[in-house]
Amino acid sequence: MIELIATAESIDQAEQLLEAGVDKLYIGEEAFGLRLPESFTLDEIAHITDKAHAKGKEICVAVNAIMHNDRIKTVIPYLKELEKIKVDEITVGDPGVIHLINKNEINIPYIYDAQTMVTSANQINFWVKRGAKGAVLARELPYEELKEMRKQVTVPLEILVYGATCIHQSLRPLVQNYVNFTKQNTKTDKDAGLFVSEKKDPETHYSVYEDINGTHIFATDDVNLLPFLDQLVETGLTTWKLDGIFTKGESFVEIAKLFVRAKEAFINKEWSNDLMKSLQEKLESLHPEERSMSAGFYTMDPSDVK
């Protein structure tokens, strides 16, 4: 069963994505969740959840931040609210949150999501034994490793099939510090649209921004696994995430539709190379002009990485 999960940047977009046919929306508040297109209040989350449930769709809320003491204290009240709202699941990356969920008998299934640190079946099974209902895979995993992992894990493994991928999180305001040093007056938030590039490889363009969780840097290529969806289906990696953090509004909804079309094609056994190529062409035209795409680590040989 293929499941399509998409981020949402507004209530409007959330409704459009549900209409477009995604199965689950991934939303949250930035005090608890990492790198979201938009930070939603509990009221907004409740509103979106009702809309989703009315359509038989689900909501996953991001609770995957690295929490310091001040925030870990507010997690339980937040989770209790989410429980009332009846969100379907949450992502969690901090073992402190897992400790609290188990201690307080919070009845929301959680998906383990420690970003770069989710790289083997045994790690995931460690968290499954402690209650995790699934895991979000790191993006630094070649297909050969994903295949091995899939064989050894029984819970769903979420894989990013479209969107930006974070490769660095610092609690330091790295851009603001630079801006201060050079006495400039530049915004450093997500909407500022900043990039860095390597001096020795000027073609690179790593997105960078700051928020309350620190500074985030993203890979130069956004992930696109559209050409490999058949392989994913065959392998049993069918929980697909679409991340619209840098793909705005209508374009992201249209991209989601392409993946919905792909999903239907698999269900109806009509996936073909021609369909893939036509979807791929449309995807390329919808993807933001200033950004590039590739399969990232997916197509690498495990021995390529030292």
Binding site: T116, R139, I167, H168, S170, A219, D304
Partner: peptide, 18 residues
């Protein structure tokens, strides 16, 4: 480390070194 330790894969993506 300038990052939260473990939460940085710049090296993986820039140098193919984990």
């Amino acid at each position: 480390c300038i990052s939260y330790s473990g939460r940085c894969v710049l090296s993986n993506h820039m140098s193919m070194r984990d």
